[in-house]
Design a binder for these strands. Structure first.
Lengths: 270, 270
DNA sequence: CAAAGTGTATTGCCATGCGATACACTTGCA
DNA sequence: TGCAAGTGTATCGCATGGCAATACACTTTG
């Protein structure tokens, strides 16, 4: 799998109540979603055969699915040339997700306020087991493409937001998450050893925020803060991210930790 | 239907090559997507019965679908209290959409540059028949919740971006779109009469941009520019939007039209 | 000008999803 | 307190509807 892009794998199941894998799927919809998920590993339009392969389906079965998904607007032909790409109706569900998630609703105005003051990138990322998924992204001037995208995700084990979340989980669960993570480094700086990560988590637990330097992107510096639900369990994190070219870690934390920390507390329900 | 929020209805089919409605759906996946689409009309978590009703399904059939969709992470229980909400896996598909759409890729850096200069809200909206769907949103300081959301859509007939797109379509198609549109006003200012809209479109055709004042949101002023594909057909629009409290229409256009117009041309392939 | 790709359409058989039914639990009203 | 009307969940048989096979038109490749 060609993957030079920063992206974590989606979790397989509903975490909230830990149901184990259940063979009682509605199969056809599982297949349909596999077809749509074929694009997760793509970096260009997919042909039918490629979709069939990714979705573990017959070419003809894949074609039927693609046909139906096209009729509904979830897939469309690539405007230029061959193959298929995701369709715009996807974005309708995106909107539903964002509108209906109480966390996103609460967080957005707070983060806007924060962004206005700090003038660096500000994000909300949602805890999803081995990864955290960006749901709100408020850009700064310096950007790359991926730092603007909703839905982008990074591993929990090596992001400042992830550490912030881990710092609020019981040790056993932290261990479990680290054990199940595929701890591939993104940069030479990425911390991949379990003891070192545990060290970082402890540190985070003590000081109330996580500091990540060049963990995902070389030259990026970020502070992460946990967001808690009404029971005190971590459900998300907020980040402030900037460039090492402009900030020393000390300056960065001194400037942003107090404000961002307060924002995180404002969003939390605990 | 309770709808005080600004939202257009999704189009039913693939527009690119105009396939008429085809009964050869894969039915079960149609039903599955109806279940997910039940949230389009919701403004709070939905119970099984509500989902069943929206999706035109038996309560038990709905429960099977919901179960499967939950196992896959496309639906989750509302964290607090009863009911279901969309699940985070939705955002994986959002990412695929945004990553793989060549238009979004090309437009993002250009819009970032534009945003840096104009310091007002800058958007990319994608043409989808009767509506335009926001895919890239770069905020300014003043915001409301909905002006930050990817996937949000507004009607083509009454938005500056929509007019910009219409101005590049043949008259017959413009008429067709206007005829099929449910031309409900959003504000007292909203232009709903076909002749007046055609007038606006002609004006836009002449001057190369569309000026919208309080069309969707009272007090909002926006300029829209068409984005063309390689064949010269309009596929999207870019907007710069600000507040009437800060700008007269003349000042606004004088300041932003030249830059934004150039940006739109840079994104276009024609 | 084959050969190997695209994407599309049709058809029959049997896996599979719907609907009926039952149940455990919570909430609200009498 | 009890019962009615809500939640959400689980199981199972039958008929429906989706998979696989097959065929074809078209484009790009060598």
């Amino acid at each position: 799998m060609a993957r030079n892009t920063t992206r974590a794998e989606p979790g397989q199941r509903d975490l909230s109540d830990d149901q184990r894998a259940d063979p009682l799927f509605v199969r056809s919809i599982e297949r349909a979603m596999q077809v749509l998920s074929a694009f997760h590993h793509a970096d260009a339009p997919l042909s039918l055969s490629e979709i069939a392969q990714q979705a573990q389906l017959d070419r003809s079965a894949a074609q039927r699915m693609v046909h139906s998904l096209r009729m509904m607007g979830y897939i469309r032909r690539d405007p230029t040339g061959r193959g298929f790409v995701p369709g715009i109706r996807i974005l309708d569900h995106t909107l539903d997700y964002l509108r209906l998630d109480p966390l996103v609703r609460r967080a957005t105005p707070v983060l806007q306020e924060l962004r206005k003051i700090v003038r660096e990138r500000v994000d909300l990322s949602l805890f999803d087991d081995l990864r955290v998924v960006y749901a709100v992204r408020l850009q700064s001037k310096r950007q790359n493409f991926y730092t603007t995208l909703v839905g982008h995700s990074v591993p929990t084990f090596c992001s400042s937001g992830g550490w912030a979340i881990l710092s609020k989980l019981p040790d056993a669960q932290v261990r479990d998450i680290l054990d199940r993570s595929d701890r591939q480094p993104f940069t030479p700086e990425t911390i991949t050893e379990v003891p070192a990560i545990l060290q970082k988590v402890t540190e985070t637990r003590d000081q109330g925020y996580a500091l990540g330097i060049s963990q995902i992107l070389t030259g990026e510096i970020a502070v992460g803060f946990p967001v808690l639900d009404a029971t005190g369990a971590p459900v998300a994190a907020i980040h402030v991210a900037g460039s090492q070219a402009e900030w020393t870690p000390e300056e960065f934390t001194r400037n942003f930790v107090p404000l961002a920390s307060e924002a995180a507390r404002a969003i939390s329900e605990y």
